[in-house]
């Protein structure tokens, strides 16, 4: 029902975004009335910044639409949890369904947006977020691959660089892929990137920067950039 708007012209903000500010920025870009799945971890914070009158409906892939906030105290019900297995609440208008229906509505393109974390995203929107491929690591994928390719728009939220300063926006992912050409936007602490999933000329559009100039960003990221 609602489609993501392609905004605006390039802007530069003065300071790097904290996790809360980044979540608020993502929330502000979610259109009223959208059906949205927020991934486990940092993306869950986005729900704190959705306006109560926005009409946004949250999907949780374990089988619910109309998920409310985390449950506390007497509201905790072991039969009512989110995909991260955290007790949650139901909002008026909620519905429950089994797993095949839940993933059919995702794969069938009925969700408007999903927001996921990432280890790496490539310039053409390939996503790596499920496995570092380290020997000895026990792999676990959950619904990440279904989510990445299922929603109409897949947003990634992450810090732009790893702890040792490597850009997570890359020419080509070196970690095992979650999905091919699926990410449409990347929200990071220092910039918001718009991805052309058709491949385009291989460059990535920068909608805004925070705490760095466009030129400083170009030096950080190993893919060609252009201003929105």
């Amino acid at each position: 029902m609602s489609s993501v708007q392609t905004p605006s012209t390039f802007t530069e903000g003065p300071t790097r975004l904290g996790k809360a500010e980044l979540a608020a920025l993502v929330a502000a870009d979610i259109p009223d009335g959208a059906f949205v799945n927020l991934g486990i971890g940092q993306p869950t914070l986005v729900s704190n910044y959705l306006a109560p009158d926005s009409g946004v409906t949250l999907h949780t892939e374990n089988g619910m639409l109309g998920m409310g906030p985390e449950a506390h105290g007497d509201d905790v019900d072991p039969d009512l949890i989110n995909a991260g297995k955290i007790p949650v609440t139901e909002l008026p208008g909620a519905s429950y369904f089994h797993h095949a229906d839940s993933f059919a509505m995702m794969r069938g393109g009925h969700l408007d947006i999903c927001v996921l974390g990432a280890y790496q995203v490539s310039a053409r929107g390939d996503l790596a977020n499920w496995h570092t491929g380290e020997p000895g690591a026990i792999p676990a994928v959950g619904g990440a691959m279904d989510l990445a390719i299922g929603a109409k728009d897949t947003f990634v939220m992450m810090t732009l660089t790893t702890r040792d300063g490597q850009s997570k926006l890359v020419e080509a992912c070196t970690y095992p892929l979650t999905g091919v050409g699926c990410v449409s936007r990347i929200y990071t602490d220092v910039a918001v990137f718009l991805i052309d999933r058709e491949g385009g000329d291989g460059s990535v559009v920068v909608r805004e920067t925070h705490g760095v100039s466009f030129e400083e960003l170009e030096a950080l990221v190993p893919v060609p950039l252009r201003r929105a």
Binding site: H99, P139, A140, V141, A144, D146
Partner: peptide, 24 residues
């Protein structure tokens, strides 16, 4: 984790939606 690391259990990892649809 313990059984897996000891090589005492086999794992077939399936994306969640594919798992559900294969059962369906």
């Amino acid at each position: 984790d313990e059984k897996y690391r000891a090589g005492e259990i086999e794992l077939e990892l399936v994306p969640q939606g594919n798992l559900a649809e294969r059962i369906r």
